[in-house]
Design a protein around this nucleic acid. Structure first.
Lengths: 217, 217, 217, 217
DNA sequence: AATGAATGAGGATTCATTCAT
DNA sequence: GATGAATGAATCCTCATTCAT
């Protein structure tokens, strides 16, 4: 689309291609701090080191910045191999544990954490963004985990449980923690807490999924 | 929209008593649908059947309406007897189950569900409201459950687990469901789903808390 | 001021005739403190001990209160015998001195002082009030003094000066002092200062009006 | 209003340099005519030839316009050399006369006259502006004149009088005239009147300050 | 006579977006 | 490509005034 001149070699002048990312970087911080509504385009521009007008060269509207932000964050996730999870055969628990640890690790980066939080906060005013996030993240991760669990139950490695609902049992506390920590500062927000939470959580759930003893109810 | 011709509209209505609640009722719906920022005081007024100016007779500002909304919803919760939970002795699981079913039942009312969702969405712009909600709801419920679990572990009814973190394991999926259902329409939003989720969830967790066999991980 | 119920005894219900005056009393204080624009009818009503609606039983509008205020203050002035001044024959200086001392004495009462100050401040928005004040006060006092001076010059008691302009020389510093003291707190606002000012002023002006040596510019 | 057809109105004008002054010019006229409270930001904008929003590019608030107005007018005064007056030695009367004539000349410009009048009218609602005016104008001019008079009295050129109070005798009628002429249209408002007033006034006061004849107390 | 709930016009201010340069 | 001056719609809030009771 844009790139007219690729490399006027060593980069004296800021390369135009870098600009959209600089805008997104600025917006990510500001949206995270103040929310979308309370952040002005001018603040974003200033933080990104360009003029308000220039922002509109790269993004059609303020909301397009939000979209761009989420899209950029989602890209890597998309490529992440949920397929491997889905096609796994054997005891699902080590795979789940690996996935959870991956997630916990990722959430230590505030810039990563900001994205889902942003989506949550701004969902009522930006349903498209929420839908995009859902399609790209939730609609991939949750079914993959469900398939993994279904396979584990079918193969007798874990108890016979509803795969979809059990996926929520596994992911729910992690998701809730991230929200609550941000919004209410519930449970100290240190990343270490999330790790300890994951450990305790998996220990209980994995025991609860043991095939031997049938569960009540 | 609703009823076009009520009657020769009586200009003045004069029923101060009911008005604040009518305003809150209108605001609850509008905030839930459009979010706080996108809702106009005039919309609230019209929906409540009075003039913009009259709204300011009862609420000092638009934000005060939000506060009033949460405060009104929180009132009953405050009175709820968390103390009973806290002072319970014996196997905590039936008590937890009762509590969860209570919660699930309450969340079937959209007007009740709206409140925590509203708090989540508007937290960045209304930290006071978030803090109020936290103090009145979370800071009461979570410690009570933690105490219950600690007691259960001490008395050997359940496995030795971190009480606070385990509270999150228990509540997390329910909380996450409410968010995800609203924001992403993940898992159909029918109330029945929440009940099924709770059943499956508790079956796993309760099994995982069995004292006999220590868990892996 | 504050105590709503001074004397429970004889008059049970406030006599309706007293009400307008109570409103004016309240308004005088509030207008003086905050200015006309920044004072709300509700403040006046509350201070006067009645309801906002009741104020409109006595005054057609907020501006009518201002008019009423000035009219009430002007009444006594009207009755003051400027005629005596005008018809006086002889050295005008003692008469002027008496008049000035009268004025200085009157200005010690903040409620009296408030009126001209109010007129000044609100003149742009209430030209009618300004005109009323002018007609009732200035158009009576200044010509009377001018006539007095003209007579004194004609009879040789003082130097031949322009009577009208000389009136301003006499009154100007007193008027200016009242303004400046209020608006800028120039010269300490203690009433004593005004008296000292008048003394010093008259001593100079009276000397300057001595008939013997005419010293033009 | 002014000129109906300028040209096919260029939507954007782009001349940031001149704009603040244009806004002030417009505001000066409107504030002078209608007062601060009754003047709309939109009126100012329209008269200055730009949009309401653009006004806020140059001034933070409506009140900042008022401040800017007074500040702009005060600048020159600040630089005026009151020092020369203060350090003068000899008969103060010619210097006073020069100063008064300077003032009288300045007051012929309605735009200059407007400023102190504006300050007077708006003082209750803008005490900061009043204080600024006081500090920059009154607190410089009055002490300088007082010092001049004290020196004249000490050196025997004029009678022994209170310097500060005498300053008010000298300036009072001029100040009062400016107020009264504007507010009450007392004494025709023609500039010539002010000059005649000054002549008559100084002739009396200067005679009254003659050292020969001792003045009474 | 008195109340006070209700009205509704009006104005300051913000900010996403545009466009001449 | 970049700027930043300019726009104007949108909205909160105030308050003088009215009127059913």
């Amino acid at each position: 689309m844009t790139s007219a001149t690729d490399s006027p070699p060593p980069k004296f002048r800021r390369r135009a291609e870098a600009r959209p990312d600089e805008v997104l970087d600025a917006a990510l911080v500001l949206f995270g701090d103040q929310g979308f509504a309370r952040t002005t385009v001018d603040q974003i521009a200033r933080k990104a080191g360009l003029s308000k007008g220039a922002v509109y060269l790269y993004f059609q509207s303020k909301e397009a910045i939000l979209e761009g932000l989420v899209a950029r964050a989602i890209g890597p996730v998309t490529e992440a191999a949920f397929d491997r999870i889905e096609s796994f055969r054997g005891d699902p628990r080590p795979v789940i544990e690996g996935f959870v640890r991956l997630l916990v690790g990722a959430m230590r980066d505030p810039n990563v954490r900001s994205i889902p939080l942003l989506v949550i906060h701004e969902a009522p005013g930006a349903p498209d963004v929420a839908a995009m996030f859902r399609r790209s993240v939730l609609d991939r991760a949750l079914p993959a985990l469900s398939a993994l669990i279904a396979q584990g139950a079918a193969s007798g490695h874990i108890r016979a449980v509803d795969p979809e609902l059990t996926t929520r049992t596994i992911m729910g506390p992690l998701i809730a923690h991230i929200f609550l920590a941000d919004i209410f500062s519930v449970g100290n927000a240190e990343p270490a807490t999330l790790r300890r939470l994951a450990d305790n959580h998996l220990s209980i759930v994995f025991a609860g999924l043991e095939p031997h003893k049938g569960g009540p109810a």
